[in-house]
C-alpha cells in the first residue's frame, strides 16, 4: 500500500524482497498480494490482529508453506523455488511461535545439532565434537543465559528458557536473516527484559523480522513496523507514524 514502487533491478539493495505474495488455503487468502522489503541490518517488526497472516508470512519465507503466486527474493535467490533446508543453508533462520526444541536432548545437544556443520548423513555420522564446536556452544549458551544448564535435558527448562534456547539454536547458525515469531509471548516481565537485551545483542550484523504483540517491546526494538490485516499491509513505516495511523488504531491498537 504505502510501499514504494520498486523495480526488479533495484532489489539488490535489499536482503529480502517480497513481491505480490499470495497464498490461498482452499480459496481463503491468508496472505493477499503482499509486498515488502527488508534492508540490510534492519529490524522489522510485523504486528497485526490474530489471524492477520503474520505467521503465514514467515511460513512462506522459510518454505514451510508454498506460495500460490508471488516472489520472495533473498539476496537474489528465489526462495519460493527452494527446499526448506536449502533456504536455511542460504542464511534464513526461523523461530517458531511455540518453543520448538528437542526435549529429549540436553541443552548442549540442542545447540550442537543446530551448529552448521555435518548436515549430510555422512557428515552427521563423522561429526566430531571438537574444540571449535564446544567453544561456540559455550559462547551461545552464555548469550542466551543457559551456560549453567548445558547438561540439562531441555524438557526441564522453563518456558522462557526454552524460547531462549530456540533463539540460541538459530544464532549458532549465524543467519543473515533471522525471523522470530512472538519471542516474548508467555514470558514473565523479567524474562521479557532479558529477551529484549538479548535481541539487542543478536541483531547486530543481520536483518531481523520479528512478530510481536507487546507494543512496548516493539517500540523498543523496531526500525520499521509493518501492520498486517487480513493478509494485506494496512500501514508501514516508523513506529511513530504507524501508531498515529487512524486505520491502524481502528483495527488493532484501538483495542
Amino acid at each position: 500500500m504505502n510501499t514504494p514502487v520498486i523495480t526488479d533491478t533495484m532489489n539488490k539493495d535489499f536482503v529480502l524482497a517480497v513481491e505480490g505474495l499470495t497464498v490461498s488455503f482452499d480459496g481463503f487468502k491468508a496472505v493477499n498480494d503482499l509486498s515488502f522489503y527488508v534492508d540490510e541490518n534492519e529490524i522489522r517488526v510485523i504486528i497485526g490482529p490474530n489471524g492477520a497472516g503474520k505467521t503465514t508470512v514467515l511460513d512462506l519465507i522459510c518454505g514451510r508453506t508454498k506460495a500460490t503466486t508471488g516472489s520472495i527474493k533473498f539476496k537474489d535467490q528465489e526462495l519460493t523455488r527452494m527446499k526448506e533446508h536449502e533456504i536455511v543453508r542460504a542464511g534464513v533462520g526461523r523461530k517458531f511461535q511455540n518453543p520448538s526444541i528437542y526435549e529429549d536432548l540436553t541443552v548442549f545437544e540442542n545447540l550442537e545439532i543446530s551448529y552448521p556443520k555435518g548436515r549430510s548423513v555422512v557428515g552427521a555420522l563423522t561429526f566430531r565434537r571438537d574444540a571449535p564446536v564446544k567453544e561456540r556452544v559455550q559462547e551461545i549458551a552464555e548469550m542466551i543465559f543457559l551456560a549453567d544448564q548445558l547438561d540439562q535435558r531441555a524438557e526441564y527448562l522453563s518456558h522462557g528458557q526454552k524460547q531462549w534456547l530456540e533463539i540460541g539454536m538459530l544464532l549458532i547458525q549465524d543467519p543473515e536473516l533471522l525471523m522470530l515469531d512472538e519471542p516474548v509471548a508467555g514470558m514473565s516481565v523479567s524474562e521479557r527484559k532479558k529477551t529484549a537485551e538479548l535481541l539487542h545483542t543478536i541483531i547486530k550484523n543481520r536483518s531481523v523480522i520479528v512478530i510481536e504483540h507487546d507494543m512496548k517491546f516493539v517500540e523498543d526494538i523496531a526500525h520499521k513496523v509493518t501492520v498486517l490485516h487480513q493478509g494485506k499491509i494496512l500501514s508501514e513505516g516508523p513506529m511513530a507514524k504507524v501508531q498515529a495511523d487512524p486505520k491502524v488504531i481502528e483495527v488493532y491498537l484501538g483495542h
Binding site: 527446499k83 533446508h85 526444541i101 528437542y102 529429549d104 536432548l105 548423513v121 555420522l125
Partner: peptide
C-alpha cells in the same frame, strides 16, 4: 552416539525444527 543418532531423536520430537536447522530430514 554419533550426531546422527541425536538427529534421529530430534526428528522424532520436532521434525520441523530439524528441517529448519538445515537438514534434509528425509535423507536421515
Amino acid at each position: 552416539s554419533s550426531k546422527l543418532g541425536r538427529i534421529l531423536v530430534a526428528m522424532r520430537d520436532k521434525e520441523d525444527r530439524v528441517r529448519f536447522s538445515g537438514y534434509d530430514v528425509s535423507n536421515f
